[in-house]
Design a protein around this nucleic acid. Sequence first.
RNA 1: GCACCUGUAGCUCAGCAGGAUAGAGCGUCCGCCUCCUAAGCGGAAGGCCGUGAGUUCGAAUCUCGCCAGGUGCGCCA
Length: 572
Amino acid sequence: MKRMDFRQTIAGEIGKVLGDQFGDESLSTSDIAALLEVPPDTAMGDYAFPCFRLAKALRLAPPVISDKLKDALHAPFLARVDSIKGYLNIFIDRATYAREVLSEALSAGDQYGASGEGNGKTILLDYSSINIAKKFHIGHLSTTMLGNALYKMHKFRGYDCVGINHLGDWGTQFGKMICAYKKWGDKGTVEAGGVDEMVKLYVRFDQESEHDEALADEGRAWFKKIEDGDPEALDIFNWFKAVTLKDAERVYDMLGVKFDSYAGEAFYNDKMGRVLDELRAKNLLVESDGAQVVDLEAFSMPPCLIVKKDGATLYATRDLAAALYRMDTYHFTKCLYVVAYQQDLHFRQVFKVLELMGYDWHEDMEHVSYGMVSYEGQALSTRKGHVVYLEDLLNTAIEKARAIIEEKSPDLPDKDAVARQVGVGAVVFFDLYNNRIKDIDFTWDRALNFDGETGPYVQYTHARCCSVIRKSEGEMGKPDFAALADPEAQDVVRLIEQFPGIIKSALERSEPSMVTRFSVDLAQAYNKFYYERRILDEDLAVRAARLLLTEVTRNTVKIALNLIGIDAPERM
RNA sequence: GCACCUGUAGCUCAGCAGGAUAGAGCGUCCGCCUCCUAAGCGGAAGGCCGUGAGUUCGAAUCUCGCCAGGUGCGCCA
């Protein structure tokens, strides 16, 4: 059931009155709809029409216009229209409003807020992009969870999504690692210890090669072997990859994150020639200090390095190759790179080079940048041990959740499962709570906070809704929507109405935090309603209406949490 | 030096395709469980929205300058 679109309908009515009363037809219905505002306070109505802009054209003071509109505006679904200080405040009949919004949301069920706007379109998302033989730490959380959320949100709006973990699996360090492994390593130890063991080998190599030139040369030689496709080198290298991915998979499983492709840096090794050929053919390559670059001075950017003095290709070359390959393979509508803002210049350069190459789809590339993570005020440093590993963080959060459950809900079934959902939810929520551009200074007490605007708070509200519904024992009379006319219920209804628009804006801005924030707003509004109004009322019609509101809130909270990659337990 | 980003309550931040009295959480102080989950709810205190100009009927929001912090700027990725 498609509910009445209040904004459009009201805009149409205002348009009619403007024509009748002032002979003004300069504004179309959609113009007026865009001008309509949602007032800061429910007491000021559901929609407001500011008359200031009309003042000049009509040569009348705004309050005069709003007064006249107030007298002329009538519609059956309008409860009241006020004229205050040049604003036309429009009050929709509260029962009608609640009925329309809730019926729509209820019939949409777990698809409330979904749409088909992305049907037939493909979105590529490049996120997480872990490095081989490195541990997953809190610095990798944002790219992973932002990418995951954007993936789910796009999917919900009908897009086909391709999640790419662009592995950092190329570089001289892997030659060193193989060398170290051959000298001091042991298959069983690495197999059992995973990335930790590989890191140990690498650190030892680094230390010993500092005063051993021969060793450094040996490392370089092993990298050359990888490049040349030497079977032994490749075997070991691919095994390193498998071990790293197995370690990472454990964390990805905890976070509920998946990928459709693991094509990383190494994958593009044999695809660089095309980039060079095209750049040359298009006369974009110039020599500079022995290197080949694309000059971007005209765009006030430093040159984009394509080929080193020694003939080797670079980061930008690889990203160009990847972009061409991805377009050929997936014919994407958009390609999002969820990468920290340090690489802002890099992506601006790469996108500009694509433009200069004549690809109009350069406009469909977007760098979804996010802020840096520091730890208790200092930069993360694996070397200095100033680092928090993701697995440790998640496990600590789960333990804390488990302890709280033991204390507050000792009879809860599936304690472990719920502790996982809540602990992980707290961490993920913390990561997706602020605008992505903000730097995050990680502190344990903030990341593990379960009170206030946190994942557990929103999950708790969801569990509370579930609990009320369970207690109602399915007693659903015919709802009396007039019972939802109180301000607390209306605030909840209004938020629910806004949800589909929130998802849309969040996608337009590639900003999952808008959904996170929404989940808090809705939870707060519902909790207030919960305390002010008795849901399981004796009056069955009132009870049915409040239960319906509870049901729709539960659905909406769950959808919002799921979109940002968080589970919604039914009890906690 | 140049480029990009950020500056809002003690702290962490919403609000920024201009609109009505600038909001929330944390922390502090004070209340609320014989009643649907107190991981909750209510109240108090706390603000020249970095700063100066400009645009506008109207600026936290747009423009320019300045100040402060972060990040990046040729052969790493």
